[in-house]
Design a protein around this nucleic acid. Structure first.
Lengths: 150, 150
DNA sequence: TTTAAGAGTTAGCTTTAGCTAACATTCTAA
DNA sequence: TTAGAATGTTAGCTAAAGCTAACTCTTAAA
């Protein structure tokens, strides 16, 4: 099992079962927007993601075709159970990366960096980062306590 | 300065000065292959990156156009000073991410994960991760020492 | 010195995910 | 109840980065 190099696109082609980063972005945002029972529509989703409505229409049709959302023309966008499950996982991943970046002291463009990095970690890396962040937080608490004593 | 969401592609369009992931992959690999004075050719580069030769030809012309390599048809590929500098930085980034993933205990597909993640970190995140990895290594050493005493 | 193999290039295709312009539908308010 | 605003869709464009097929160069061996 020799390890070989690929371009980033090469890895995507190799792991063809995985969703594209864009699909993930849309699903994560639909999940966010629909969390407290609100209805999600093309316009709102487009604005939230800073894309034009036709891009959203196109992507929604794709997500519907692949079973992540229910959608019919001019209607509301609803996640299927599969989409819901994934959305929740993606939002979780987002939060994990965000907390990690905060805990290591990143200050500039944290949201942007989170959005970019979240697509680049697989489950194993994510769970390692989660544990690491908990550990770092404990370290910080100890430090704070010790400094507080002075 | 409100923070807004974009799709991954949206961030790429926003930060248009940055190179594409593919460009980075090619430059990093040319740097690797040419390190000990060896000549780099289309075939070798293609094989190293697992792409077909026409893809390499196309990318090399682009890299030449943008001042990262010297190239003329049927010739060897040579990094310019700008390309050399970038290649060295990219290889460094690669190593930093690789070491980080190792230090947090990632075991499966480390190379692949490195190759994917390295495109997703900016300078600030990278330098934070570098410091963090040094810190973690010290922790490991202390642990090992303590365990060694038993 | 010629020819065949190997290396590199060109042309043209694909997919993804954006975009605009133009059209269609739905909703709201007069 | 109908007109216009708001929303959504369609068609068709772009760029990036891959691919194959077919062609052209270069080189090495007979």
């Amino acid at each position: 099992m020799k390890e070989e190099f690929y371009t980033l696109k090469g890895y995507k082609i190799k792991n063809e079962e995985t969703l594209s980063s864009s699909m993930e972005d849309y699903i994560e945002m639909i999940f966010r927007l629909s969390k407290d029972g609100k209805e999600v529509r093309v316009r709102e989703l487009s604005q939230a993601l800073n894309v034009q409505p036709p891009s959203t229409t196109k992507m929604i049709r794709r997500l519907a075709r692949e079973g992540y959302v229910f959608y019919e023309k001019y209607g509301c966008i609803n996640l299927t159970e599969k989409g819901e499950k994934l959305g929740s996982k993606l939002l979780d991943r987002h939060k994990t990366i965000f907390e990690f970046l905060k805990s290591i002291g990143v200050e500039k463009n944290i949201l942007e960096q989170t959005e970019i990095m979240e697509h680049a970690v697989n489950d194993e890396v994510l769970s390692r980062i989660k544990k690491l962040t908990e550990f770092l937080k404990k370290c910080h608490q100890n430090n704070d306590r010790n400094n507080g004593e002075n």
